[in-house]
Structure formats: structure tokens, C-alpha cells
Amino acid sequence: MITYLVRRLSQAVAVLALVSLVVFGFRWLLPGGPERALLGAGQTAGDASALRHAYGLGRPVVLQYLTWLGQVLHGNLGSSAVQGTSVGSLLVASLPRTLALTLTAAVLAIMIAVPLGLVQALGKDSALDRVLRGFSYVGYGMPSFFLGSVLILVFAVRLHIFAAEGPQEPGIAGVLADWRALTLPVLTLAIFTGAIFARYARAAAIESLASDYVRTARGAGAGPRRVMARHVLRNSLIPVITLAGLSLPQIIGGSLVVESLFNIEGVGWQLWQAALKHDFPVLLGFILVIGTAAVTGSLLADIGYLLADPRVRYRKP
């Protein structure tokens, strides 16, 4: 297990190094070269030379990369070419809204997906399984912006139950308190993610139902309820939670669309606006942070899986 951990950790470090290289390399793709793109409109010659000095442009590329990496590791992601504020402060301002949105949606998605997967696995190929499978097909094929638009049309415009715009309050507590505004964005994201999770939950429950430990538990006289609660449910929950950690990039991508639709000024909304306004420092800074978070999330998911599965935990090297 230790060997696996060390190997997995060094893999993650290698991937992180590649991620940083990719983000660093993007600046040469930018229109007008790195200086122009990093400064944005309204630059002067003085600005450019100051920027060249700050970023070490003109020096060998390897040195530039190391200087940049040093700044990033100290939390300096540069400043927005449009708004002038630092990328870090934009991130700090927008992160709570996205966290509140995505975490609520992920929890809700798991709460929908795991019971559905269990019910489907128990009655595999039954009429209910087929119907739910059909829903899952549609849920997967439906673009999240369309789903969100339909929810707005029905629940906000026609029935006036929920707001059509997401929470505008800053801070996690403020967002969570505004449930009328939060419901539709969370629901959109949860249905989108839940459709993916339900497939894995179904596959995991089918696998679990046919496993030796379930047979043993039944043989030892455990009732169906106990088998479900203690063995099948638990063992179908673990892979789905792991999956939630691994799908971080997809969840962030989904929240970008939801934030743009419901006008929630979170991380995804900032990225979207930065793309529309060609604000490259913000785009690159946010992408670096998201990439790092995703690599870390997938590492933690793998380690969590290792710790949760006794068959792996107790295996002799």
C-alpha cells in the first residue's frame, strides 16, 4: 500500500508539473504575444517595460517559467487586464458562491443517484429499471443550459415558485440562506450530475449484490434489510463518492454553464466573462487553480478509495 501511495503521489506531482507548463505555455498562443495579452487594453510603453521586468520576459524561457512558478506558489496570479484587480482577489470573491452551489448539488446528486441505482440493481431489467434507464439517457443527453432554461420557464416564469436568478449575496451563508434563488441552479446541476452518478451507482450495486461478502452475509443469516444497509448500500456509496472527487472538472464545467444561465457571479461566471472580454490573466490564473484542484481531487479520491475498501487496506504487499 505504501508503494502504491508513493507511486500515486509522484504521478500527481508529474501531472501538476505538466499542468503548470501547459498554462505557462498558453501565453505564447495569446494574440499579440505574452506582453500585450497580459497587459490588456490601454497599455503604455512604461507599462510594458514594467511588465517585462516583473515577469522577467526577455530572459531565457526556463528562467521565466521558474520566476512565474515562484510567484504562483506565493499566491501571486497577476492582475486582471480589464478590471485591474488582482486575480487572487477575484477568486476569493467568487469561490464561496461556487462552493455553495457545487457542494449542495453534489450532495443532492448523490442522494438521488445512489437510491435510484440500488432500486434499479435490485429489479434489474424490470419495467422500473427500464423506465429509470430511459430517464438517465435523457438526463445525460440534455445540455445543462437547456435543462436550466426549462426549469426557469416552468417554475419561475409560469408557476412563480422559485426565482429565475441565482443568489446574489456574497459568502457561503448568504448564498445558502436565499433558498428561493438557490433551488433552480442547484437542481439543474444536481440532475445533470445525478444522471452520471446513477449509472455508476447501478453498476456498483449490481456488482455488490453478486459479491462474496453479500452471499456470506446472507448465509450467516442476515436479513435483506441488514444486507442492504450494511453491505450493498455502503459498498455502492464508496465508488460514487470517489467518482464525485474524480468528476471535479466536469462539475466545475457544469457549474460554469449554470452560473452563466442564472447570473451567479461565481468562479465559472468569472471565467466566462473573462473569455468574452479577452481577459487572459484571469482566464489563465483561474485555469491553473482549477487544474491544480482537479489533480488534487483525483489524488484524494484514489487515496480515499484505498482507505475505504478493506480488501485493499489489508492486502499484504
Binding site: 501531472v15 505538466l18 499542468v19 501547459v22 472538472p249 466536469q250 466545475i252 464545467g253 460554469l256 454553464v257 471565467l271 466566462w272 473569455a275 482566464l283 483561474f286 485555469i287 482549477i290 487544474g291 491544480t292 482537479a294 489533480v295 483525483s298
Partner: peptide, 12 residues
Amino acid sequence: AAYAFPVIVLLL
């Protein structure tokens, strides 16, 4: 490494 970036963000 490429997997670490949400597709939609790279596309943006």
C-alpha cells in the same frame, strides 16, 4: 494532465 482541465474551460 489534460484531464485536469474542464473541457468547457479549455474551449473558452
